[in-house]
Every structure is written in structure tokens, then in C-alpha cells.
């Protein structure tokens, strides 16, 4: 598996990363090296082995259905570049 500069540009766009044109080629090289390293895993026969989702041998911790949080509008909005009337205010996202 390998990626070309077009794929790199697309991944960058999906992640909202600004990658200058002249960085695409070097990045593709780096990513391909990483992929080649991971590719070593295909040397292992994984037929009939279910995909591993977690390496932690624990049960998913559960919470009771009670209200224990909230009522902290000021904290929630503290880092917002702009907040008005208790709302986050962002540049209009609809045409």
C-alpha cells in the first residue's frame, strides 16, 4: 500500500491541515515509509483471527443514569473566541 501526493492533499484537507504544495511530495515519502513499516504485519497469518479493538483486558466501565454535571455555562464558553447570549458565536455556516 502506498499513497501519492493527491491522496496526501486529500487527507490533509479532510483533517483541515494546510499543507503547502512543495511539502506534499516529502510528506508522501514519509507516509509511505510508515506504511511500509506497518506492512510487516501482513507477514503474520491472521486468517480466522478477529480484529483486535483493544489491548486492555478490562470491562467497559459504566455510569449510572444520574445528572452529575452541567450548570457551568461560563466554564463551557470560557475559551470561545466569541460567545453571545450564552451561545457560542461562529461565522455563519450556511449560505
Amino acid at each position: 500500500m502506498s499513497v501519492d501526493t493527491k491522496t496526501v492533499a486529500r487527507i490533509a484537507h479532510l483533517a483541515r491541515l494546510k499543507v503547502p504544495e512543495d511539502r506534499l511530495e516529502p510528506l508522501a515519502g514519509e507516509l509511505n515509509q510508515l506504511l511500509a513499516w506497518v506492512e510487516q504485519l501482513s507477514e503474520v497469518n491472521t486468517d480466522n483471527v478477529p480484529p483486535l479493538t483493544s489491548v486492555v483486558h478490562a470491562r467497559l466501565p459504566r455510569r449510572d443514569d444520574v445528572v452529575t454535571d452541567g450548570d457551568r455555562q461560563a466554564d463551557v464558553l470560557a475559551n470561545a473566541p466569541d460567545a453571545q447570549n450564552g451561545f457560542f458565536a461562529v461565522p455563519k455556516v450556511i449560505e
Partner: peptide, 16 residues
């Protein structure tokens, strides 16, 4: 653990 009730003041039923 934030509440789900409908119609509350904005951003008052929000945990971090």
C-alpha cells in the same frame, strides 16, 4: 453526567 431535558437555557446542560 449532563442533563438531557428539553428547553433549558443554552449551554447549561453541557459537561466538559
Amino acid at each position: 453526567g449532563a442533563a438531557t431535558e428539553f428547553g433549558a437555557e443554552p449551554n447549561t446542560q453541557v459537561s466538559l
